[in-house]
Structures are given as C-alpha cells and as structure tokens.
Amino acid sequence: MCGRGVMAVLALLGAATAAADGNPYLKVDGAELPTVLPAGKQVAVTVRGFMLQRHPVTNAEFQAFVDTHPQWRPGAAAATFADTGYLGQWGAAGGNAPAIAAQPVTRVSWFAAEAYCEAQNARLPTWYEWELAAAANASQRDARGDPAWRQQILDWYARPAGAGLAAVEQAPANVYGLHDLHGLVWEWVQDFNSLLPADADPEQFCGSGAQNLQQKENYAVLMRVAMLGSLHATDTGHTLGFRCARDLP
C-alpha cells in the first residue's frame, strides 16, 4: 500500500528530472560491508540501502545540466570550483557531440559533480556506498573473494591511459543492474577527501597506510583509495567521472 504511493512519487520525480530518464536510480540493498577502511576498529561497516544511477553520467546528460546552469559551462566555472581542464573534451557541440554523447563525462571536478547531483535532487555516493555497489559482479553481491574478478579489474587499471573511452552500458550489468562501476572511469565519491585517517599522507599510502587495511590482497581497492585520496576537489581528470546516488524513500 505504502509502497505503491512511493512508486508513484518516484515516477513523478523521474519524469521531472528528464535528463535522468535514461539513467535511472536503481536500488542497492543495505548490507554489512567488510571494508578496507574500518571506521575505528570495526572490520565491517553497516551500509544502509540506497539508490545509485545505472551508469556514469554521460556527456549528453551533463550538457543538459549545463543548459540550465550556465555557470557550469566550460570556461565559466570559477577557478574555486574547477581547474583549467574542466570539460576540455567539449568542442563546439559540447556534450552532445555524437562521438562523445554516450560516453561518461570526464574532466569534471568534485564541485561540478556535486552541483549536477544536487540539481537532480540527488547527491554523490559515499565511499562505502560505492564500494558496496562495486563489490558485485553479474551473479553475486560480493565478488571480491574471486581472484579472476579482481584480476579483471587490475587489468583495466593497467591499461594505458590514452586508450580512449567507450560508451556507457557496453559491458554487462552487475547483480544490482548497475553498469560500468569497473572498466570505464574512476568515479568521485562524497567523502573522497577523508578516505584515510587524518594524519595519513596519501603519498606514503602504500607504506604505512596499507598495514591498516583489511583485505590487503585486494590491491584494486588500495589503488582506488590511493587515487581518490590524493585528489583535490577542483581536480579534473580525463578518466574521472561520477554518478549520483539518492537515499531510499
């Protein structure tokens, strides 16, 4: 009964945010997440259920946002919010250029990603939320114990950076129906700047930091923590994108 009403509201919300029609928010059930970043001395973190977009925000989706938020046009974003690489891949046709429209938008700073999500009545996922969603493969919710799965991710990390991007949703979805959490772009999270203890230096991460981590054999996660933890909020990168999250109704 209550669920039906909620679904109706969600349908209305979906209709109101037209840009997200092709990138719906899918449910990720809450779970106990054994994590490489225990809060305090815990080994597992309780992650509440939430909703996450099916694929990383594309250039076309971001263009629709820029159309209604001109202060986020390339060249218009204040230096406070984005570095000079911001949306450097956009030419005259912007995010709708056929070659890139369906690719994940990159060269967006954390502030730009935050602004996009806020305009969607959404937010960036937290690190734990993203990890929970990304632990899944096509058949199970936590595939992190599968060496072949881990190796696949490491192989992607080892690919040369200039290889170029692909369109979203080319690879199969995971068990939540989510695409491209691996194999396409790195993704911003809400708390990227507090992934490590406050006194940890990201540059020395591989030394002292690693000893504090659980699941030390999961090098892919270590690399992700090192990469995200070294970013500044104004940074843009040509392999760094994002997708938005929402609380469950």
Partner: peptide
C-alpha cells in the same frame, strides 16, 4: 553537513565522523 563538506573540500581539510560522534580530522 553538506556545506561543511564543501568547505572542507575547498580548503583541503580532511574530516570523518566516527561512530562515537567524534571526528577524525586534520
């Protein structure tokens, strides 16, 4: 929360709320 996170990101301050309500922060 949202504003504090943005300001911290802007300044380069790291902080994380711990389960006991205290903050680990730079």
């Amino acid at each position: 929360d949202t504003d504090a996170r943005k300001l911290a990101a802007l300044l380069g301050v790291r902080y994380r709320r711990q389960p006991d309500g205290n903050f680990d922060h730079s």
